Computed example of a mutant assay.
Amino acid sequence: MSKTITNIHTIDLVSDFKEITKMRLAVSVVFSSVAGYFLGAEIIDFVEVLLLAVGGYMMVGASNAFNQVIEKDLDALMNRTKNRPIPSGRMSVNKALLIGSTLGALGLIILYYINPITSMFGAISIFLYVSVYTPLKTKTPLSVFVGAFPGAIPFMLGWVAATGSFSIEAGTLFMIQFFWQFPHFWALGWWLYDDYKRGGFFMLPTGKRDKGTAVQIILYTIWTIAVSLIPVFGVTGRLYLTPVSGVLILILGLGMLYYAYKLYQSRDEISAKKLMFASVSYITLLQIIYVLDKYIRIWI
């Protein structure tokens, strides 16, 4: 009986750890970082890839743990967050702070072992997410703009980890993920508007699910596509994309733009949800295409 109770307790601890670090988000960040590494590396060091993945997860996990400590009272007001470890009472604030501090310190040490500049960008990401973006979420819709900076670092971080320097290639990867976040998070904010409102969060650029917000989503979707295609023209150093892959990216982008336009037409939660998932598919497939394009060219 005691063994069964211990097993259940262990499962609960693992589940709470996954929630406090937002495992799905952290894994997507790690995926972006590893994609950036494969793009930047001339010779792949799989030890570095592992360190980047572990350090990256810790970095994001720390940011999310601190975020949930700060927003614990607001999380309790929203349906999608009220069962998180802290507002539900399953985890104390001190325990969450210990997890965040430990992960943050270890993550930055691991990234520093890869190279100092990677650790520096990791520290900047944590600082901006926790100290600037999180407090602004209840103050102004501009929080999404601020949050787009730490959110855009992972793709770039992989290139920096592989090369040890920031360059036009890393900057281009940063800009792709930077512009992408606006239609992604505004679609999410539109879909979960009522829940965010209960928590007092301002996620939409006009503060409302209106025509102005829908137009901005379309504009930022277009800019996301445009920035994603810049490497096709050979002006971004070693970061190059063949015209064939450029066409694939354009097709993906037009698909995302289609859902953005459908949201403009319908202005309902279902359309926003579809756009949100389309945006996730876009950035994931884009990163896969970028990496495959590079290595197919090398192998051929």
Score class of each variant (00 low, 15 high):
Glu42Val: 09
Gly122Gln: 03
Ala272Cys: 13
Ser28Trp: 06
Tyr133Arg: 09
Asn7Ala: 14
Gln177Leu: 15
Phe178Glu: 11
Gly107Phe: 07
Tyr295Met: 08
Pro135Gly: 10
Met59Glu: 02
Leu111Glu: 11
Phe38Asn: 04
Ile251Leu: 15
Tyr129Ala: 08
Ile86Phe: 07
Asp195Arg: 12
Phe121Asn: 07
Ile117Phe: 13
Leu252Gln: 06
Gly100Trp: 11
His184Phe: 03
Leu13Glu: 12
Leu108Lys: 03
Gly61Ile: 04
Ile99Lys: 00
Trp159Gly: 03
Arg297Met: 13
Leu142Asp: 06
Gly100Asn: 02
Met23Tyr: 12
Lys22Met: 11
Glu19Phe: 01
Val130Leu: 13
Ser101Trp: 02
Ile5Cys: 02
Leu254Asp: 07
Asn94Asp: 09
Leu74Thr: 11
Arg297Cys: 03
Lys262Met: 15
Gly100Phe: 03
Ser15Ala: 13
Thr284Trp: 06
Tyr37Val: 05
Lys137Ile: 12
Ala170Cys: 07
Phe38Glu: 07
Ile86Asn: 02
Ser28Asp: 00
Ile289His: 11
Ile270Pro: 00
Ala76Leu: 14
Gln181Gly: 11
Lys22Leu: 13
Val132Thr: 11
Thr140Arg: 07
Trp223Ala: 14
Ser33Cys: 09
Ala35Gln: 02
Leu241His: 01
Ser32Cys: 11
Gly189Lys: 01
Ser101Val: 04
Ala278Asn: 10
Ile8Ser: 03
Trp186Asn: 07
Ile70Pro: 02
Phe185Glu: 10
Pro141Ala: 07
Ala65Asp: 00
Leu77Arg: 15
Gly61His: 06
Ser125His: 01
Asp12Phe: 14
Leu136His: 03
Leu241Arg: 01
Ser271Tyr: 08
Met203Cys: 03
Ile225Lys: 02
Val29Ala: 13
Val69Asp: 02
Leu292Lys: 05
Ala278Trp: 14
Glu19Lys: 15
Ile217Ser: 01
